[in-house]
């Protein structure tokens, strides 16, 4: 089966001359349609940089980004964004502070000339568990969890098949995180979405994803199943260390 998302030898460098660093060093993975694929790594490991390259927010990369087996064009076309959408880490930063939620949600519909805007907005708000009145709020009137639900709603409006999730719950309390994770999981199953999810939190990744790539210093050092992660069957020293730290047994 053709993978929904595939990256091959993706390399991204930042800076010039002596300050040149490889943020991502020939990374490759495949995510099958309907699968939740996870990337775990610590700050600066390059995991979020991969997502930004897939979306074309940064198209200064070498290697291939394939969506449904097709090479993604540089720069990305409008049609691309109807297939691939992204949810950002910080719900406080990803919603325009001066625009009403309705304006934020209407935007993708205007750009792609969708009809029945108000119906679609009410429907998508319902899908993410928010009452229709939330359309008439400003971001500062919402809690972190509600904002992240709005961000998910925005990503869903264009009815994409692939959702990139950049630490979608790391800014939230655990009790709020549980609700958002359940929502994301349900949406994937109901709509057959493909997820590529990035996180530093092993618990979140193991819960949400079936397969996980472990990144450190720009390289994918290991790919393993979530079951292997839970059973602590990691091959590389780094992954084992990560698992130990996450289980809270790293110190006396």
């Amino acid at each position: 089966m053709t993978p929904a998302v595939e990256i091959r030898d993706l390399t991204i460098t930042f800076g010039q001359g002596r300050a040149r660093v490889k943020a991502v060093d020939s990374a490759s993975f495949r995510a099958a349609p309907g699968e939740a694929f996870g990337i775990i790594g610590e700050s600066g490991s390059g995991k979020s940089t991969i997502l930004r390259a897939i979306t074309g927010l940064n198209d200064d990369y070498t290697g291939d980004v394939l969506i449904d087996g097709q090479q993604a064009q540089k720069p990305r076309t409008k049609a691309f964004f109807k297939t691939v959408q992204m949810v950002f880490q910080d719900p406080y930063g990803s919603l325009h502070p001066r625009r009403m939620i309705r304006a934020t949600l209407a935007e993708p519909l205007e750009i792609h000339r969708f009809d029945r805007k108000d119906d679609r907005i009410a429907q998508v708000l319902n899908d993410v568990g928010l009452a229709p009145e939330f359309a008439y709020r400003y971001p500062h009137q919402l809690s972190g969890g509600q904002r992240q639900r709005v961000a998910v709603a925005r990503a869903l409006l264009l009815e994409p098949r692939i959702l990139l999730l950049d630490e979608p719950t790391s800014a939230l309390d655990v009790s709020v995180q549980a609700g958002v994770l359940n929502l994301l999981d349900r949406l994937r199953r109901d709509r057959g979405l493909t997820y590529v999810m990035v996180s530093h939190d092993l618990r979140v990744i193991a819960h949400m994803c079936s397969r996980v790539a472990v990144m450190t210093q720009g390289r994918i050092v290991e790919e393993l199943s979530a079951d292997a992660l839970r059973d602590q069957r990691a091959e590389t020293e780094y992954t084992q260390q990560l698992i130990r730290a996450s289980r809270g047994t790293a110190h006396a």
């Binding site: 927010l57 935007e107 750009i111």
Partner: peptide, 14 residues
């Protein structure tokens, strides 16, 4: 550089 500009770009905004 803010996320909300990036988010709008991903919606396909010109």
């Amino acid at each position: 550089k803010s996320d909300y500009i990036a988010a709008a770009r991903i919606q396909g905004a010109s």
